[in-house]
Design a binder for these strands. Structure first.
Lengths: 154, 154
DNA sequence: GCCAGATGGTTGCAATCGCAACTATCCTGA
DNA sequence: TCAGGATAGTTGCGATTGCAACCATCTGGC
């Protein structure tokens, strides 16, 4: 019934698993060592910096970052303590809290983003030819749409 | 100095990040829902099943699974409680504890492995053409060797 | 033979995360 | 208008994990 994985498939899968954890933890370690920020915190700042007015609703932010509501609440607590983000009640919906990137948060992000991009390039992009890059993108798109169709969320 | 990512590179990187967490959590959810075991525990059983005599030193097991010593200690506690694994002092080195797959552990693994393989195929392999599969394997090998050369461990 | 340093494993502690429960607010239908 | 359900965010709790400290054991140099 269930076909086992052949050697090629197994190599791709094992490689994927190893690369996933390896690249992630390498970037994490560099970011923490050089700038004292986790990739989780970095992700919040980066996402906010791309949003209109540098602000987002908590729930949208949580969905984008694949984080649970409680997880985001506490992650934001840390960023607020460091004055990189502030909370702001929404004028339109009083249930909603907006996470807003501060000027300090933006300048901090602009300072560390090059290091992160450099890490992505060094650990990931630089190992791929332009053709492989295109192939990867399309393969990932296909996998992503498969994930979305099976499980509605997350 | 640092080149920013162009659209193609950004698409590949974002796809990689999303697929990493998406595929991992989809497999995790299926494994937990259907058989009440985490991918972490599954990894221990799978690795032990491939070892000589179904036993491995704790430190080797931890290195293979990218787990800290303390993490493995506690993970093993859980598996021991479920009689899937037993601890056995090494005769050669009295510092060493061997993790040994029990008969019950082996039969449990053989029962759930097909589901896991099926999940890998469904969420990952099935979206890739044979050519893409080969490309991926070689790209991953390159990335892995890059990781190893930069950071000696983990 | 013996001491210093390396290695293997466990435990205390703190950080992180998700789920469930809870409150507050919004929205829909009658 | 207003009741019931949906949605947003926070908090309590338990589970997982890594780091540092610790103890036991091994190994190499003398």
């Amino acid at each position: 019934m269930t076909k086992w994985l052949d050697n090629e498939e197994m190599a791709a899968w094992r490689g994927f698993v190893n690369v996933s954890s390896g690249v992630t933890s390498a970037l994490e370690a560099e970011l923490v060592a050089h700038h004292g920020i986790t990739t989780g915190d970095y992700g919040v700042l980066a996402r906010l910096s791309e949003a209109d007015d540098s602000k987002m609703r908590m729930c949208d932010l949580a969905a984008d970052l694949h984080l649970s509501p409680s997880g985001l609440t506490r992650r934001l607590d840390g960023l607020v303590r460091r004055n990189l983000v502030v909370r702001e009640p929404s004028a339109e919906d009083r249930r909603v809290m907006l996470a807003v990137l501060t000027a300090e948060g933006r300048s901090f992000l602009e300072q560390i983003a090059p290091l992160h991009v450099d890490g992505v390039r060094r650990h990931f992009i630089s190992h791929l030819s332009p053709t492989q890059l295109r192939n990867l993108s399309s393969a990932f798109r296909s996998i992503e749409s498969g994930l979305r169709s099976i499980a509605g969320r997350n």
